[in-house]
């Protein structure tokens, strides 16, 4: 029995640059990693969302908090990504989960699309760049537009359906103006900005806690 080091990957020094090559084949651990972080993300988002249920006014205030807070689990997730495609699979399962709590199917498609984009950004940063992770999360946060897509696509039909329900036509017109594309796009932009802030917060929390605790 020789004393020489024989293990393959494990004896390699743990420097980030040597972690590649990334391959598309997931190990069971990757799958479990995606699952646990998807659950953490959902629970964090849901917890903040629950605060917003108190009243519509509070909801307006907490909605932008969702991407900010979600940055903490997401940025930790990105440090554990080891194979190409993990970010996309995260998006797919998150999209399916949002459907289970009542989001429209169009929203799930958006989530998958932004996840693919985020994946591309991460690949560009070779999976280990701090800034590409922050930008990837910013892009991912754009999913917040998803729940409103059906409303945007067919505004008239929506308003009509309810206008008939007793609202005067002036109000329908007001709503029409309020829900116009620029306003909604501004809201969306705000969410993306919050996503960027979330990415920064996530990075800060990583440095302050998870790295020092040996979790990242």
């Amino acid at each position: 029995m020789s004393e020489s080091p024989t293990s393959a990957a494990a004896s390699a020094p743990a420097s980030p640059s040597e972690r590649s090559p990334l391959s598309f084949s997931f190990t069971a651990r990757d799958i479990v990693t995606i699952a646990i972080f998807a659950v953490l993300y959902v629970v964090v988002v849901f917890a903040i969302g629950m605060v917003g249920v108190i009243s519509p006014l509070v909801m307006v205030l907490t909605l932008p908090l969702v991407p900010v807070v979600g940055g903490i689990p997401y940025m930790l997730f990105l440090t554990r990504v080891r194979h190409a495609g993990m970010v996309t699979v995260f998006g797919v399962v998150f999209g399916l989960t949002t459907m289970a709590w009542g989001h429209p199917w169009q929203s799930a498609l958006v989530i998958v699309a932004v996840s693919l984009l985020a994946e591309v950004v991460i690949v560009a940063g070779r999976y280990r760049s701090k800034w590409s992770a922050i930008w990837a999360y910013t892009i991912f946060s754009a999913w917040m537009i998803g729940p409103w897509i059906p409303l945007l696509l067919d505004r008239e039909a929506y308003l009509e359906a309810q206008g008939a329900a007793g609202l005067g036509s002036d109000y329908v017109e007001q709503m029409d103006a309020l829900l116009s594309a620029p306003v909604v796009l501004m809201l969306w932009f705000a969410c993306i900005v919050c996503g960027f802030l979330g990415g920064l917060l996530g990075t800060a929390v990583l440095r302050k806690h998870f790295v020092r605790a040996g979790l990242a």
């Binding site: 004393e3 080091p5 293990s7 494990a10 743990a14």
Partner: peptide
């Protein structure tokens, strides 16, 4: 050990 702990250092068989 070592499959479940990335970046650990193992020598021996």
């Amino acid at each position: 050990v070592p499959h479940f702990h990335d970046d650990g250092v193992l020598t021996g068989t």
